[in-house]
């Protein structure tokens, strides 16, 4: 009942700032990873997979657009401006999604780890007391079903091949692992988000839910999983400690916009 009242009332000013920050984390993560995935267009390992992976990339960008729209409704500004105009320092994406694609093994491994993460973050959002987020998360969660199935099936195939593929995946896992912690940084408003029921989970709970999903699966496939802990004290553990590749990505994204600053529409 209390939650319904709040949804009807809309978030308070303070809650609004916390909400916008959460929405931008989710949007920036999905936009940056969708952008990275789309770099495989036309050059995936086979034609059918090229088409399939493009759908996943489009979904990620589409989900980002949905979260930017929600932030926009809270007064954060136009969705496209949120996606294109914010400088590196204002970005809320995790270094995990910013890292370059590398080879297909790293892409497959990141796809697997990230979509498992999205699942636990979205599960928490489907219990959100803020209805617009709860509804958005429920929709997105349905589209993520395919992503999870695709990422797991592909990883199982590649890992079971052994040899070069397995070695490349192992290498990818080692490259990616230090950045995992950045996904679980819920930002400066984490306590408030939890207290107000906007995001009824904390970082430690999300991380242990994620580990419960991915660690047994990775172990079963024969991967030695690096030491797990609630919080890694690596330099990449915080949103805001961006990977150097993000700056280049943002410059690329602005390439057309910067051609004609006076243009009102494209």
């Amino acid at each position: 009942m209390a939650q319904d009242d709040k949804a009807a009332r809309g978030p308070s000013v303070a809650e609004g700032a916390a909400l916008v920050d959460l929405l931008l984390q989710m949007a920036d993560d999905d936009l940056v990873l969708g952008h990275r995935h789309s770099e495989w267009l036309g050059v995936a390992p086979d034609i059918e997979e090229d088409v399939a992976f493009s759908s996943i990339a489009q979904d990620e960008v589409g989900h980002a657009a949905l979260y930017y729209e929600l932030a926009s409704q809270l007064g954060a500004g136009d969705a496209d401006r949120l996606a294109f105009d914010r400088p590196v320092g204002e970005r809320r994406s995790a270094a995990f999604v910013e890292l370059e694609n590398g080879d297909w093994a790293r892409t497959a491994m990141r796809h697997f780890l990230y979509d498992a993460f999205e699942e636990v973050r979205l599960d928490a959002c489907t219990r959100s007391g803020w209805q617009p987020l709860q509804r958005a998360a429920t929709k997105v969660r349905r589209e993520e079903f395919y992503h999870r199935l695709h990422s797991r099936t592909q990883l199982h195939h590649l890992a079971k091949a052994g040899g070069e593929a397995f070695a490349r995946l192992e290498h990818a896992l080692a490259d990616l692992w230090p950045y995992v912690a950045s996904l679980f940084d819920l930002g400066p408003h984490a306590a408030e988000l939890r207290a107000t029921g906007v995001l009824p989970a904390d970082a430690a709970a999300l991380r242990s839910a994620w580990e419960a999903v991915v660690v047994p699966e990775l172990s079963e496939l024969g991967f030695g999983v690096p030491a797990c802990g609630g919080t890694d004290a690596t330099s990449a553990a915080h949103r805001g400690a961006h990977h150097p590749a993000l700056a280049e990505l943002l410059t690329t994204m602005r390439a057309v916009l910067d051609v004609d600053a006076a243009a009102a529409s494209w």
Binding site: E48, V51, Y146, H157
Partner: peptide
């Protein structure tokens, strides 16, 4: 028709190649 490594992958790629 799709080309795939296994029936499981064939289902996954067919979903996007024919039903996007």
């Amino acid at each position: 028709t799709v080309m795939a490594a296994s029936p499981e992958m064939a289902v996954l790629v067919a979903r996007q190649n024919f039903l996007r």
